[in-house]
Design a protein around this nucleic acid. Sequence first.
DNA 1: CACGACACTTGCAAAACGCAAGTGAGTTTG
DNA 2: CAAACTCACTTGCGTTTTGCAAGTGTCGTG
Lengths: 143, 143
Amino acid sequence: MEKVQSRSECVISNVLEILGDKWTLLVIRDLFFFNKHEFKEFLASPESIATNVLTDRLKRLLQNEIIAEIPHPQTRTRKLYYLTEKGKDLLPILGSMAQWGAKYLPDLEAMQPLYERLRTEPKKVRQEIHAQLNKWEKEHLKC
Amino acid sequence: MEKVQSRSECVISNVLEILGDKWTLLVIRDLFFFNKHEFKEFLASPESIATNVLTDRLKRLLQNEIIAEIPHPQTRTRKLYYLTEKGKDLLPILGSMAQWGAKYLPDLEAMQPLYERLRTEPKKVRQEIHAQLNKWEKEHLKC
DNA sequence: CACGACACTTGCAAAACGCAAGTGAGTTTG
DNA sequence: CAAACTCACTTGCGTTTTGCAAGTGTCGTG
């Protein structure tokens, strides 16, 4: 992986160079919480990311080895994206964001039950998420 | 506080509307980890934020009630910024970012010991951070 | 009252973004 | 097997946001 010159020696600053972008984290959210794995699935998210931005963010996430890709088993044009171990370790960050939001953004009554459960029983929910990711990998990764 | 029209009903998406910006989180980092409270102190961070960006981010953080301000006890031009309860509740997010970075950005050998300790004894470090914030408040907030 | 410190503003060039229209490889259909 | 379709990704371009430098107005100080 190429060295990206960092703006400071601070760990948080360097993490933000990778993650400090709305779209990047929304893609990661889709991977964790909505079981999405394809380009068109990310495109379909309600925030309506533009295609060029999505392409760019997927590229960066691949470069940073937060996600990996495999060819689609049916067609040769599509690809499947999934979280690496490094990517899966981001769950605490997303989880704490969801917990904070569940506490301080009460206007979102139509909240996905998942987020509410993340606040009330975070450990169990995180286990379920990891279980779902593992299940997908068993079905799609041969090695 | 004015209603900001949100791009989706997703909690994480709405959190990212507030936090999904590098500079915003760097200001919060300075408040948590480096005991900074003044405009010029944020400016002095090694990432060298521009004055207009800093002004904008402080304004947004105030609007979102993540930080609050008081007049400087010595001069009437300066202000002191500090984290509200809502802002202090962001520590798990910053903490999990620091932990992830400490694990996956090992190139940063010159890492602040704080971050290393956040990985090895996160609870204790978070207690210390809250203690430091409380100490500052006792010295500066009259009410 | 002149000077400096300071938070904040302004002007402008550069970068990022959003949108619409491609592109090209692969797949399906008649 | 050729035309139509799907899909990830690219390109062009107008708009928005950012970064940087210089400036502004207010206040404290000598």
